[in-house]
């Protein structure tokens, strides 16, 4: 039979294709519905957080940092509660990473703060002597791309029904709403308001000035994102 196939390229190719498709059909498709449900307390990203997430991706922080806490005591001691599937419901793409050159960041918002990130991103060794993480000084001057972040909010809302402007139940039973503005100008103003709160906790004068002018340096967006990781 195999020799027969080897003389008939078409059937051979069909045979190969069926053999390799098999696993995907059985393993992947059936689980999609189950996996996609958000856990209680999981909110979509705000505009500024999303802009920060883009900075994280642009600079491939995921090359060194994971965002997945495995259910081992040593990991929950170091990073906090193990990850649950529904916590990632709004992560497009997922950012689990595959290498921990640096520590996991899944819940870094719980135990690092704006001022610490400011010091650390500017010069990692200033807070962690011996760190091999690169300094990201350019983020203190380069401006974040707010419009693309807004574009993504609109897109995931339209295409994937990500619940902006809807009450979301938090763990304590209260509800919160993440706003998606009608226009980009309005969205910009929202992001700026969020950025001002962060800049207030920062020391870098250039960053503070930029935010006053209405520009948001990448570092502010990135910190908004890092603080949202809880």
């Amino acid at each position: 039979m195999f020799h027969w196939l080897e003389q008939r390229p078409f059937f051979f190719a069909v045979g190969v294709f069926l053999t390799v498709s098999f696993a995907g059909l059985i393993e992947i498709l059936p689980n999609f519905a189950e996996q996609a449900r958000p856990t209680v307390g999981t909110k979509p990203y705000s505009g500024l957080e999303l802009a920060g997430r883009h900075v994280y991706i642009e600079d491939s922080c995921n090359a060194c940092h994971s965002q997945l806490i495995r259910p081992f005591k040593n990991e929950t001691d170091r990073y906090g509660m193990y990850s649950l599937s529904g916590e990632y419901a709004y992560d497009r793409p997922f950012l689990w990473g595959s290498k921990r050159t640096g520590p996991d960041l899944m819940r870094v918002g719980n135990y690092r703060t704006t001022d610490w990130h400011e010091n650390h991103m500017f010069e990692p060794t200033s807070v962690v002597p011996g760190s091999i993480m690169p300094a990201y000084k350019h983020m203190f001057s380069k401006v974040a791309d707010l419009e693309t972040a807004y574009a993504e909010m609109v897109t995931v809302n339209k295409v994937f029904n990500v619940p902006y402007n809807q009450p979301i139940t938090m763990k304590d039973g209260s509800t919160e709403t993440v706003k998606l503005a009608e226009t980009f100008d309005e969205a910009r103003a929202d992001m700026l308001a969020e950025a001002k709160l962060i800049a207030a906790d920062m020391k870098n004068q250039d960053v503070k000035d930029a935010v006053e002018r209405g520009e948001i340096p990448q570092i502010v967006a990135l910190i908004a994102y890092l603080n949202s990781l809880k």
Binding site: Y79, R107, N110, T113, D115
Partner: peptide
């Protein structure tokens, strides 16, 4: 004066 000290709440498990 310096900035923010994060919390290590018991329920965060750390």
């Amino acid at each position: 004066a310096i900035g923010q000290m994060p919390s290590f709440k018991t329920e965060d498990l750390r």
